[in-house]
Write a protein that binds this DNA or RNA. Sequence first.
DNA 1: TTGAAAGCGCTAACAG
DNA 2: CTGTTAGCGCTTTCAA
Lengths: 335, 335
Amino acid sequence: MGKTTGKATRNDVANLANVSTAVVSYVFNNGPRNVSPQTAQKVRDAAAKLHYQPNSIARALRTGNSKTLGAVINDFTNPFALSIYEKLEMMAAEKGYSMLFATSHSELQKEKAVIKELMNRNVEALFISPCENVTLFTPSNENCRLVIFDIDRKVPNVSTIATDYTKAVQLGMSHLFKHGHTNIAMIIGQSSNGISDGRINGWYQAFKNEGLPAGHIEHTEFSRIGGYKAMLKILDLKDRPTAIFAGSDLIALGALRALHERHIRVPEEIAIISFDGSIDSQYTYPELTVIQQNPQEIARLALEAAIGPNSKPTRHLLEAKLVIRQSCGCNMKTQ
Amino acid sequence: MGKTTGKATRNDVANLANVSTAVVSYVFNNGPRNVSPQTAQKVRDAAAKLHYQPNSIARALRTGNSKTLGAVINDFTNPFALSIYEKLEMMAAEKGYSMLFATSHSELQKEKAVIKELMNRNVEALFISPCENVTLFTPSNENCRLVIFDIDRKVPNVSTIATDYTKAVQLGMSHLFKHGHTNIAMIIGQSSNGISDGRINGWYQAFKNEGLPAGHIEHTEFSRIGGYKAMLKILDLKDRPTAIFAGSDLIALGALRALHERHIRVPEEIAIISFDGSIDSQYTYPELTVIQQNPQEIARLALEAAIGPNSKPTRHLLEAKLVIRQSCGCNMKTQ
DNA sequence: TTGAAAGCGCTAACAG
DNA sequence: CTGTTAGCGCTTTCAA
């Protein structure tokens, strides 16, 4: 028996089955050498009797493949981001990968530390979903692929996966214009490092296309409380907008709370369109009309970039779609 | 240089510093032998020059301690559960532990598989937060401590951490009674295996104390959609209740949606008290009065049970507190 | 205070 | 088809 763990090792199995340790490996790995059916069965019987389980740590050390992926998450209470990771974990598990998670709390310092820690644990790829503090710390590590969410620009040696924000925002804005709104404000998290968010480009583009002066942009955090505070500020504007474009569902949640506190009816007095299309957006009052991203596809592409055969960094830009519910003014229920 | 990874190894450092590999270990581990300050500095210089990082996999193999914890999560979009794991991860990271996450999707079969997979990866402890399919599969593994959330009963060889549901529900119910409600219904997830949820005990106890016949219990899933469907059923009851006790915030979210769809005013026509006190409960309309659990303390105790020096399984029962907001009928705003 | 060396459990090249 | 064996990077006992 193995000494440190008290668990059966490959050696124990080999002894019991009267074969060499190599054969045990061949059986468990289906290669690289063939084993006769009878011998293989002997090995499997012995393994079963001993409740043998291969030690993944030893295997990782030997092969250099940890079969582990890392994820740095900055907000565990963001259902949209987490839904991506949930799918990612499931698809990764099917391929024999496990996922290590760490929290950055949107602090750049912390983010650096956890990235380092994760890399020390030999993750084969690292998923990062930067929030306002978009990471500029992309350590080069030939053994670890990097895939970053939510940046639709090119980063050297890194795969990026994002929704086409510019286009997506215009999709939402044109819907708002159709409702007759001309005074619209946007609430969005800030890129503390000056990287322009595609949502902002789309914002200006939308007004330009409409021949309208661009509306007010309120910068805040990408969070519920951020949306709340920003909405409060907007309500104090001299020329109060009649519609809001929320940069994320979390922001919309906060905005909605501010609106309710001030007894402002949505969508009658102020309409809202939000961005993400998380499950939360279906359980607000009123239900949110959203620009919906595709978490399933994001996860699929992310995994491919992480462990796919093609090791070249990729860059994906996905389409979003408009999901009409109530907060925009459509589907209004007669009270 | 190490062959497989292209990264510097302890050997490279030893060579450059002109010391033995053992000394490098002593320096990086602060023991078990002393090293003279000069030598130690030489080692650190060499390590810095080579960007040496200890290989945690090799260390894990050698010591038998993976410094890794596992968590099986069944719903990534449950902010309450995730807030516990977020805190857990942070506290674990401080102690040098990383966390492996896996999804069970509340499927018992999947849960078994991921528990096995996590254990094969030599996690030192495993956190499980069973939902309706309370796990009865608690594999004994002397190398892996088990800590289970949300079960307030004794399980052999397992640490359990839960809020005192029985007491907590009574706390909420007495508040509802104070508001004058007598016809109250409860929506709660079902324990598919017949284990009675403390919330149900508390429910009956509360009515008994009040000398009232127990209200209707609607069983459903512990999810937004579950709450929604259950609320719809309750609204079709002949004797429609005037108040709802929701077994979780997610259930309350769904119930609220059903209520809004039917144009039933909360709390005027139907009041709600919910259970958890997640961040979501502050962003509903109206804001939810909740029985609030203490995720920080839950996380602290869970980590202690997982990696604390005392290896005996523990059992903790925590207090919850009533947080009064609007959905119960208090703090009503003049419209 | 330092070094030599065994060995954690596994894989795979090589030999038979 | 099967066995022998070196060695992944590290820790730690034992000897110096």
